[in-house]
């Protein structure tokens, strides 16, 4: 099954992911505001139950780490954790952006499909942000 899954299949999985996030209103700027103001359970319920289901499924599927020698590319080289600053700092910076745009990366893409075409600008800006991180990487605390 592994590595036989056609790339087209990921298009369908992505479409399903996009439909769910749209219909659950995760892509709504208003829902994100509601979350950061702790004024409804909706987003916390979604993120919390998603983590719970994923954790249970992982435990059920538990198996030795997959070999990466044959076929599959090795994980990207961002695995070295440094002293952990990157999670606080990077996470905090992303959080500010999340509240400002009202969208994390998934919804940024989904909103474009959903007709909020100005999010093309946000994605281009996000690309500039990722590129800038790459450029400054050696000078940032990790």
């Amino acid at each position: 099954m592994t590595s036989r899954f056609p790339l087209f299949g990921y298009l369908l999985l992505g479409a399903a992911f996009g439909i769910i996030l749209t219909k659950a209103e995760v892509i709504s700027w208003f829902r994100i505001q509601e979350m950061f103001r702790f004024q409804a359970f909706h987003m916390f319920g979604i993120i919390g139950s998603a983590i719970a289901v994923a954790a249970i499924a992982r435990l059920l599927l538990k198996r030795p780490p997959a070999p990466t020698l044959c076929g599959e590319p090795a994980p990207l080289a961002d695995e070295e954790t440094g002293r952990g600053y990157r999670f606080w700092l990077g996470g905090g910076i992303f959080g500010i952006g999340w509240a400002l745009t009202g969208a994390c990366p998934g919804p940024l893409f989904i909103l474009i499909g959903g007709g909020v075409s100005v999010m093309i600008v946000a994605v281009l800006s996000a690309l500039a942000g990722t590129w800038t991180y790459g450029y400054l990487r050696s000078r940032l605390p990790h």
Binding site: G90, F94, G97, L100, T101, V121, A128, G129, T132
Partner: peptide, 15 residues
């Protein structure tokens, strides 16, 4: 949109 998007891209890459 512009600054928010930039921070999303910078922050997620960093984190």
């Amino acid at each position: 949109v512009v600054a928010g998007g930039f921070l999303v891209g910078f922050g997620t890459a960093y984190a």
